[in-house]
Design a protein around this nucleic acid. Structure first.
Length: 573
RNA sequence: UGGGGCGUCGCCAAGUGGUAAGGCACCUGGUUUUGGUCCAGGCAUUCAGAGGUUCGAAUCCUUUCGCCCCAGCCA
């Protein structure tokens, strides 16, 4: 705490931590305070998770490394545009951050600072660094110039301090309609950085704000509110995404101009990192909104979406998402992470968390001809494979008539097909080996039933004199629990959506992103499962009991992710 | 009158003048009553290209090329 050598710093794992370490070593700060500043106008997605993990993670790490400084990452709602924001979004954002596993000490709002922001604005006017501009919206745009050419000064740029103050105060009082005047910083209309060409600080908006009600009719812009909010709160490192790099110069201008006047406790600095992109999905607010409002998915928590609500309902664990964020690192290069990386993370997490059970998704009746008609054996089946160090098992009923999956039988199998086929023998998981002796077909030639014989001497041991390579899952017909199973897959059928502006990306939606199966057969033990329980359906994937649609007598399961399937891959599927 | 960034294996990403980490993906074998897991092995003579400095360069210099961001009274 006090002895400075105790401030030995762990090896930085990315450029942000490197910067923080240097700041600490140089004594620029003696604690680290970060912030996660969502605008409450939409749902959080996995891209936000990267920012959440970074900002809250930094606070946690340095809070531990610098004992006594506390752990401080501010959840701050950037609520400066009353026409778009709402309390509903604040609630879902809080729920999502908590679900991800992070906690804040206090909730902040940019709107908490409206009065101070206003005082800062008046100060800038008084020192001649801000003025009221009465150009129209299109005129302002025209005067701004272009990326390749300088802008020109507004005719209102040289108004007197007195006139500016009077106008600004009347703006606050509500004497003007929306759009009539704005407050602008007086910087440089020829600055090569367009963000510095007399940026707007305040605009008039006669709109009710979800936090401040009708108290205000002028609202600060992001570029004004954000740096001041950071500075007021004592944020040390203000971390945002790459597209704000150009805003940094303005961020610094605002803080520098106000530092003395506002007596900020710290001099915050902004740093930018590359946002998370994933292939086979969409992440932009606009596209997510279009999917939801266009009815292409069933709401913000549709398991096909990369929203945190969607991933949660899909069955992804917070641990798996944090693991993804840790594994992709933090850097400045624009990048797109492979969905396979996320899928690895959830499989890796669930491998030792999800008990194994048997479920037949596309049932095919199998009758064991030499098994006694009314006999039922209770066989012990472990919930965990040998390599997962957990205890626990259940009894599964075995009988003459069972269901197996259609994929596990072929009339004319290719080489190295280890499952069932005419004349072939296969192991029934936890039970006996059976040999297919006959098949029953309907008039169209479809196999409707399989006839087998079993070898009574193969329970818990291998048959003598022959090798049975395949093991398949099954469910006793008389004891099965019927269920609906929703097979989810990647949202898009191509890596990147078409680049077109409008709704073109809708054409890239994977038609099989959701396949609903009914009449699936679950093993008896699943009758006791609760919503949100996760299981591995052996040989098929990880599934979760749906939190909304599942009913005790009509369970619904969502497929979280398939198991790796090297057989399917070798078959070129 | 343009400015700000970024380019290291199929995808991420370490590396900060001393001779290319790691993860995912992929390929080989082994174990296996999950074609899962696990284990063993393989996978960049080269860092966008070209020059240069140096005993030595992904790292320094010069130059070329490519990609991203900025012209909301959004954030």
């Amino acid at each position: 705490m006090s002895e400075s050598p105790a401030r030995e710093v762990a090896k930085a794992s990315d450029f942000i931590r490197e910067i923080i370490n240097k700041d600490l070593e140089a004594g620029r700060h003696d604690k680290v305070v970060t912030r996660f500043p969502p605008e409450p106008n939409g749902f959080l997605h996995i891209g936000h998770a990267k920012s959440i993990c970074l900002n809250f993670g930094l606070a946690l790490e340095y809070g531990q490394r610098l004992p006594g400084t506390g752990t401080d990452c501010h959840l701050r709602f950037d609520d400066t545009d009353p026409t778009k924001e709402d309390t509903l979004f604040e609630e879902s954002i809080q729920a999502d951050v908590r679900w991800l596993g992070f906690e804040w000490n206090q909730i902040y709002h940019a709107s908490d600072y409206f009065e101070r922001l206003y005082q800062c604005a008046e100060h800038l006017i008084e020192v001649g660094k801000a003025y009221v501009c009465s150009l129209s919206d299109p005129e302002i745009r025209e005067y701004r110039g272009t990326v390749k050419s300088a802008g020109k000064n507004s005719p209102y740029r040289e108004r007197s301090v007195e006139e500016n103050l009077d106008l600004f105060r009347r703006m606050r009082k509500g004497e003007f309609k929306d759009g009539l005047h704005v407050l602008r910083a007086k910087i440089d209309m020829a600055n090569p950085n367009m963000k510095m060409r007399d940026p707007l600080l305040y605009r008039i908006r006669h709109a009710r704000h979800h936090m401040t009600g009708d108290q205000w009719c002028i609202y600060p812009m992001y570029d004004f509110a954000h740096p001041i909010s950071d500075a007021i709160e004592g944020i040390t490192h203000s971390i945002c995404t790459l597209e704000f790099e150009n805003n940094r110069e303005l961020y610094d201008w605002v803080v520098d101009e106000l530092m003395e006047f506002a007596k900020f406790p710290t001099r915050p600095r902004q740093y930018e990192f590359a946002r998370l992109n994933l292939n086979y999905t969409v992440m932009s607010k606009r596209r997510l909104l279009e999917l939801v409002e266009g009815g292409h998915v069933r709401g913000w928590d549709d398991p096909r979406l990369p929203t945190l609500a969607g991933l949660r309902r899909r069955g992804y664990t917070p641990e798996s998402i944090r693991d993804l964020c840790a594994s992709v690192g933090v850097a400045k290069a624009n990048s797109t992470v492979d969905m396979a990386q996320l899928e690895f993370c959830i499989r890796n997490d669930l491998n030792h968390k999800a008990p194994r059970v048997m479920a037949v998704l596309n049932p095919l009746k199998l009758v064991i001809e030499n098994y006694p008609d009314d006999q039922v054996e209770e066989l012990e089946a472990s919930y965990w494979p040998h390599d997962v160090p957990k205890e626990g098992s259940r009894m599964v009923p075995f009988s003459k008539e069972i269901y197996i999956d259609q994929d596990d039988f072929m009339l004319d199998p290719p080489k190295k097909y280890f499952r069932l086929a005419p004349g072939a023998e296969v192991r029934l998981r936890y039970a006996y080996c059976v040999t297919c002796t006959d098949v029953v077909k309907d008039k169209d030639g479809n196999v409707t039933e399989i006839r087998c014989t079993y070898d009574p001497d193969t329970l818990g041991k291998n048959p003598e004199g022959r090798k049975v390579k395949g093991t398949i899952h099954w469910v006793s017909a008389a004891h099965a629990v019927d269920a609906e199973v929703r097979l989810y897959d990647r949202l898009l059928s191509q890596e990147a959506p078409p680049t077109g502006k409008d709704s073109e990306f809708l054409n890239a939606i994977n038609p099989d992103a959701l396949v609903v199966l009914t009449g699936c057969k679950l093993e008896r033990s699943l009758a006791d499962a609760k919503p949100q329980d996760r299981f591995q359906f052996e040989r098929q994937g990880y599934f979760i009991n749906d939190e909304k649609d599942s009913k005790p007598d009509a369970p619904v399961y969502n497929r979280i992710v398939t198991l790796k399937d090297s057989w399917a891959r070798s078959q070129g599927k």
